[in-house]
Amino acid sequence: MEHARHVFRVAFVLVVVLAVVSLARGFLVPKSYGLYGPYRYDNVKEQMNARTPAYAGAGACGECHADEFKKRAAGSHKTVNCEVCHAALALHVKEDGTVVAPPVDRSFTLCARCHRKIIGRPVKFPQVVLEQHVEGPVEGKVCLQCHDPHSPKP
C-alpha cells in the first residue's frame, strides 16, 4: 500500500483531532451533570437558594400588627392577604432588620382593581359602578371615607 501513504497520513491527522476534542470535552462537562438526568444537578440547590422570599403571608404581619390582623380576620377581607394592599414583607422589613414604611396606595385605584364592576367578575362578588356608588367625583381616597380597609363592610 505504498501509494496509499497519503491516505494513512490524513487518517492519522483525523484521529489526532478527534482525540483532542474528546479529551477537551471530558474536562468541560460539569461534575454534577448526569447525576439524576441530562442536566446539571447542582442547579437544583442553586434554584432553592436563588433568592430570599419576599412575601411571607398574613400570619407574619400579625406578629407586629395584631390589632389589624384580628380586625381583618373577623371581617369580609379575611381572605385578603395583607401584602395584596400593602407591599411584600421584604419591602417593609429589610434583611438586616430595618423597618421601612411600605408603600401603600390609599386612593380608589387600589380598591377599584378588585371592586370596580367590570365584565368578567363572578356576579356574586361585591363590585360597584364607582360613579354610581359614590356621591361626587371619584378621585383620591374616596373609598376610605366610608370603608375601613381592614373590615370593609360599612
Binding site: P53, A56, E95, G97
Partner: peptide, 18 residues
C-alpha cells in the same frame, strides 16, 4: 406559621433577632 415565615425570610441575623 409566623415562625416558618421568619426562618424563610433570610439569613440576616438582625432580621432574625427582630
Amino acid at each position: 406559621a409566623p415562625a416558618s415565615a421568619a426562618a424563610a425570610t433570610g439569613p440576616g441575623s438582625t432580621r432574625r433577632d427582630f
